[in-house]
Design a protein around this nucleic acid. Structure first.
Lengths: 216, 216, 216, 216
DNA sequence: CATGAATGAGGATTCATTCAT
DNA sequence: TATGAATGAATCCTCATTCAT
């Protein structure tokens, strides 16, 4: 992706690397790209600014690395779910549950993912995220195709479109557990206690997707 | 909303006011709050920085006014649709079509709406958007309730949850026509020409929602 | 003093003129030359900025006019006292009493006088104040000379030096009733209630000056 | 005095620190708080603006530090004089001589001290100066009390009031050697050559104070 | 003549980046 | 290699002054 990707950075201890990235993710997630402060990140990560600039070419480079880190984590979660193949609806349920658990445990990663989808730098960010989205897109579409063939899913739908809609539902669900705007919106649509009632939302969403996909 | 809302600003000619707001919307949408440059906005709007600060207390005030302007425009579109009441699915179809037309005609407004949902300033922004989201939430939920009673919609679903899911689908659809990240994502999920095939996406989305909502 | 001194300004009604000058004096006294705001002064004086610039060439011109106004007021008080000629000590007592009454009734005039003695613009200000100081200097000195001849004052003192010292005592006394710094200093030197005990300070100061000047 | 007093600043070399403070003192003294320019101070001090803001939180912080520096210098001079205790009049004479020498050698420090007594920021400045003024106040008063007991000074005077008057004379004397306004005033009261005749002024002032304080 | 909207130069402050130690 | 002090360009905001109405 970058011509000379952070040789120095991959040489340091994993612990240190993780500390740096987690700090960067948190700062970028909380303050956005521009307001995040490299000197603050260095201080919070317990290293010097000089070192930051040994490991990364620029602020943008650090941002993109943090973005990549975020995507890797999301990918890992997704991989774990899809590794054990079952029917589509079970997978959907497991994804929803994973989003509910994971988003809350990794608020900053999700916040940063939200921030990444914003205009600024989106071209660079897309390069990093595209492969994950690609995997997801293909996976969901093929799941749907299979469901059409073997599980009685409707045959008159475009699997890619439906995959898109379903992923859209997942994305906004993710944001709704972490990002202030979407949290407020969720509470307004349903009620103030919805954040404490994962089962309701999960159950209804499964019902929604199942209804959309299956005939009966 | 603001204690002393821009007395000077509402006194100037509508043409000038619109020029300023559209410039601000475009700059904030393209560059984000921090990177947007007040001096540039002034220059592009054809006025002096001094005037900007006569009309607005601060950069944040200008941003929030631009955000409010954006929301008003979105509200106006929504209002036009919901004013002529028919059955829910017809309304859904009209909303989808409106999103497709409007988003492309008003790229920056949609981009800015996306940017507004990002962490930074989200509390302030929420105050501006909340009433529109509130209207939407109640409207969709009551539509669904009515559909349950009169149009044969499933009775085992929570109208508020389903309203939430449907609005989620609308939001991401909006972003998908304007925001670079979401545009790429849409192309990846479906195909590179999907932006030129509104009917397919609209048709499929209606099918998706109808399936989710109705029994047969 | 100024080549073309405010033709327009002397034509307007005295009431308006006074309002403008008093507002200017108050603003310059409170905030200092730089921080005082012409637009604010105009607003508080109930006229437009445009008019201010009809009456005065510049901020500096307004400042100097306000300074001159201040000096005129001080001069008037002094004149009233010295017009009824008695012995020096009676005059000293009357001056002290006048300072105590006048300073508190005209806080801003005294504050501004203090501000005027500061470095910035002091050359221009001096031109305005010099004649008053000159009158004072000569008056005190001649009083002292007369006292040396007729009232038994010490003959081994330089009347001009002693006039200077006595005026110094008056100046700091003036500031001590109006300017925050000097007010605190006065309280620290004597006690917190000294501002409410004019007689003590007046009595002691007269004693101080009489002792300095007279043999017995 | 300040919650977190300039950690970074006290770590740099004394030479550099002094250069910065002397530059700041000179600029603030000449132009006043508002007109003094941080960028100019940085340039004249031979450092970058960035560094100024590493050492000081704000312009105000730099100003107050410069004010504190000024007071420390004044205190040091005073301390040296009062350390060798003799009778009051000898001390008075030494103080007057010190003022004459010191003020001219440290014009900017005295100018700044004058500027500090002006309204703007006076509350903050007072915190810095108050302890010095307190020391002076008590010292002079106790000197006078002792002189009343042992040296034949008048017993019918309030030591604190007289201490105040004497310090007033010292303050204006200080200003008269440095600040343009007071320099002009001094020349007007006495004569144009008075600045070159320290002995006359010193001698007369001692005579003035002695006369005020002692019976004979 | 009076008005006050408009101007834009100027200045405090921030922070990504560099480089001497 | 790691540090963190130093840099200075960049930007928000203010306000004296102008001038069209």
């Amino acid at each position: 992706m970058n011509p000379e990707p952070n040789k120095k950075f991959i040489d340091i201890s994993e612990k240190k690397r993780d500390k740096i990235l987690q700090t960067a993710v948190a700062e970028f997630a909380q303050y956005g790209y521009d307001s995040a402060n490299i000197n603050t990140i260095a201080e919070k990560a317990g290293i010097s600014v000089g070192s930051i600039y040994k490991y990364f070419h620029s602020k943008q480079d650090l941002y993109l690395t943090a973005a990549g880190f975020t995507v890797e984590k999301l990918k890992a979660v997704l991989n774990e779910i899809i590794s054990s193949k079952t029917d589509f609806l079970s997978t959907v349920e497991r994804i929803i549950r994973a989003i509910q658990l994971y988003s809350r445990d990794n608020i900053y990663l999700t916040k940063l993912y939200n921030e990444m989808t914003t205009e600024n730098k989106s071209e660079l960010v897309w390069r990093i995220v595209s492969d994950m989205e690609g995997i997801t897109a293909n996976l969901y579409a093929s799941y749907i195709r299979e469901a059409q063939e073997n599980e009685g899913a409707r045959k008159d739908v475009d699997p890619r479109c439906f995959a898109f809609f379903i992923d859209n539902l997942f994305i906004v669900l993710q944001f709704s557990y972490c990002c202030e705007y979407y949290k407020e919106r969720l509470k307004m649509f349903i009620d103030d206690n919805i954040m404490a009632n994962d089962d309701l939302l999960a159950g209804q969403l499964i019902k929604f997707i199942r209804g959309a996909l299956y005939l009966k």
